[in-house]
């Protein structure tokens, strides 16, 4: 194993990785639900910064836009309308063993996946415009057009379903 050189990239990576992991730990240890949500936002933000360091600004933007601007906002809204958020009196999880087993299984799965995948060691297209490559890959019949269209169809169905459920009858 070679020594990791200390450059701006590695220092920034260390900072943001520590931020992400630290915030993620706080998400599960914090007692206050609202604080938990804010720590989650910080963790998501750290992840966006890591994407930025990987020279994938579009993915970083998506991370900010969808996870923080969309999902985290929804989580916070739900927490804000729940009662007794400021004074949690009872433990929210009463099955620590089940939780532990589930968490360990998920961890094992993720670790197995990380070990299995042959990660590329070099940047894929060093000189190419990443955004352009992504856009073309999404509409290229030889690449991802089918998954892309199926995903859009799925989202449309979800949208229609939401409207149907919410419709007053």
């Amino acid at each position: 194993m070679t020594a990791i050189p200390i450059t701006v990239q590695t220092v920034l990576f260390a900072i943001f990785a520590a931020l992400t992991v630290g915030a993620a730990i706080c998400v599960v240890t914090s007692r206050n639900l609202f604080h938990t949500a804010l720590w989650l936002v910080l963790a998501l933000f750290g992840l966006a910064a890591l994407y930025m360091l990987l020279e994938a600004p579009f993915i970083a933007g998506l991370q900010l836009f969808i996870y923080i601007g969309g999902i985290a906002v929804l989580i916070v809204m739900v927490i804000m309308v729940s009662r007794q958020v400021m004074h949690p009196t009872e433990k929210s999880v009463n099955e620590p063993l089940t939780a532990l087993v589930t968490a360990l299984l998920v961890l094992a799965g993720v670790v197995w996946m990380i070990v299995q995948i042959p990660w590329p060691k070099e940047p894929l297209h060093p000189a190419q415009d990443n955004l352009l490559a992504l856009g073309q890959a999404l509409v290229d019949p030889g690449k991802f057009v089918a998954p892309f269209e199926i995903t859009s169809l799925l989202l449309l169905v979800v949208l229609l379903g939401a409207i149907y459920i919410a419709k007053e009858r």
């Binding site: 579009f58 900010l64 836009f65 906002v73």
Partner: peptide, 15 residues
């Protein structure tokens, strides 16, 4: 991603 960055920041600023 200039304009997308602006949108992402402004949606996050709702927080």
């Amino acid at each position: 991603i200039g304009i997308f960055y602006i949108l992402a920041i402004s949606s996050a600023s709702l927080f």
